[in-house]
Design a protein around this nucleic acid. Structure first.
Lengths: 331, 331
DNA sequence: TTGTAGGCGTTATCAT
DNA sequence: ATGATAACGCCTACAA
């Protein structure tokens, strides 16, 4: 049987209330009893029962992090940011994922918002509607949304349009006029934003946007890159560069296929990816790409949610972070 | 204010106890009241308060997963296994890491074992002593250790010695007689086991083990690989192959450095890594390596812990999983 | 400075 | 089949 306040109280010949006050460092306790109680507590290896404490204080001391899919390195990186920004965090992190569960995302949100198991929630790239997100607001569970702007809740996200714009600007600056774009509409990627940046850059240089230069892939994999490479070189528009908002693995697939087809990168085909995966530094030539500040997103989110939970800040906040253009050798 | 059992009880003109029985599908409830209660509960969007329930049942419905470092792809992969093996899991996963925390690993274990916040714990690669792990057993908190054999608790781990043995066998089979080994004693990697497999393979072919062929790196990074490559080629023992239990990134660093030095891989230098990171398929030539069944480890661990928590199984279990030799083009 | 008493929202054991 | 009542372990007025 675990040791409780009462056990300590008996030995110290005081009441549980007194012990509680000592444990919680409340004032107005005589030095004598404080020492006695503390000594006994430590002797018995007392730790407060977290659940009982939660019930008494209506506080779970936990925050929920809801991720779409732990297999995504993007998500994991944000999670790292959340966990490592430590703030000497006294909140337990509870992890939920929405892929392959019996519950839908919306059902999970309903449940978490009402079960009182967590004091606040961080949602990474939720796909549901704003209306469905409202449940957190309605139940007064502080919530921050990552990777998506949200009117009704706090959010932390990046400016993908600008990221793509910069990448395309770089290619145009290198003299490319026919630049292919590879997109992927799977999951919850903000692909349209990224495509917009590409279009804006082109138009600012009076290069007409041509949808025949935009190719779609099903997934961010080398195989898809290999397949789409064929389409690129068969295009009558003869692209001399590719910008790949779909992701780095597609970009890597394209590079490897191009090289093995005897082309040289970037001379025959310049390649710019999106994400800055670890593999971007491994492929030869190393991949020029757009990095999202994932750690910082997690970082900002956890700071924000704790401020909200502890009532330091009440208005809805939007934090927009910039992407970073990582210039390597593939373009 | 969240809606409670009492709210429902009032509207349904029954007591909270009755509502509780309905919510928990207990028998001996008239169809009438069952329907009435359920209707009101759903109308009010009632969800049981998880914390109150936990206090009443002495069950948190949560399992703790304690990882050394979320930045390790190894750890993340195991975590994926844990989360995805769903078993329609009704346990919340709480995530703790032991790097850069104010608490030491041992302190964390003490706290978690006694706070009653979790019903069971999965420890990934704990570094502490067996004695320090005993707290889980003492407090009757079921616990599974991953990636390390443990006498006092359940464990799930791989046979690293055999993995290394197979890899070395492969190199010897290709005719290599002078095989360098790269180790890394950082963190909690079972480097000695891996080195043992290498030694065993050599000795089974009457190739004397030579410690001058074993090099140490500080980390599993390309930079370390680059640095150690110099040492390898400068060795008077002229190794024609390298086996790198230290990890794939070091292996990749070696390959890239060798290629840029004008050598060809595997002809001039055969390279075998350890881990099978995503980047192993990206480097040119693709990396031959030893894969650990990380998903399966997570998978087995979660199944095991749930059996323990629910009392289906009481004896201490050891699950040893095999590694898999992934044959690509670098050897 | 410390004790008493009530409550947090459930579940569980009795009666009835 | 349902209602009273106590209990889970802790916190917090309030009283003494």
């Amino acid at each position: 049987m675990p040791v409780t306040l009462k056990d300590i109280a008996e030995r110290a010949k005081v009441t549980a209330a007194t012990v509680s006050m000592v444990i919680n460092n409340k004032p107005n306790i005589s030095e004598d009893t404080r020492e006695k109680v503390l000594a006994i507590a430590s002797e018995l290896n007392y730790y407060p029962n977290a659940i009982a404490r939660g019930l008494a204080t209506s506080k779970a001391n936990a925050i929920g992090v809801i991720v779409p899919n732990l297999a995504s390195s993007y998500v994991v990186r944000i999670l790292q940011g959340i966990k490592s920004t430590n703030r000497d965090i006294d909140y337990t992190v509870q992890l939920f994922d929405t892929i392959g569960q019996k519950e839908t995302e919306t059902q999970l949100f309903q449940r978490l918002a009402r079960e009182r198991r967590i004091d606040g929630a961080i949602l990474i790239g939720p796909v549901c509607s704003e209306a469905e997100l409202r449940v957190f607001k309605d139940e007064h569970v502080p919530c921050v949304v990552i990777a998506r702007k949200c009117d009704v809740l706090n959010s932390v996200y990046v400016n993908n349009t600008l990221g793509s714009y910069e990448a395309t600007e770089y290619l145009v600056g290198k003299g490319h006029q026919s630049i292919a774009g590879i997109v992927c509409y799977k999951k919850n990627l903000p692909m349209d934003e990224r495509l917009d940046g590409y279009k804006q850059s082109l138009s600012s240089h009076n290069i007409p946007f041509n949808s025949d230069l935009v190719f779609e892939v099903a997934d961010d994999t080398m195989e898809e890159g290999k397949a789409v490479f064929q389409k690129i070189i068969e295009s009558p528009l003869k692209p001399s560069a590719v910008f790949i908002p779909a992701g780095d693995m597609v970009a890597i697939g394209i590079i490897k296929t191009a090289i093995s087809a005897g082309m040289s990168v970037p001379e025959d085909l310049a390649v710019v990816g999106y994400d800055d995966l670890p593999a971007a530094e491994v492929v030869e030539p190393t991949l020029t790409t757009v990095r999202q500040p994932k750690l910082e997103m997690g970082d900002n989110a956890i700071d924000l949610i704790i401020d909200k939970i502890e009532g330091r800040d009440s208005e809805i906040k939007d934090i927009e972070l910039p992407t970073k253009f990582i210039c390597r050798n593939s373009a």
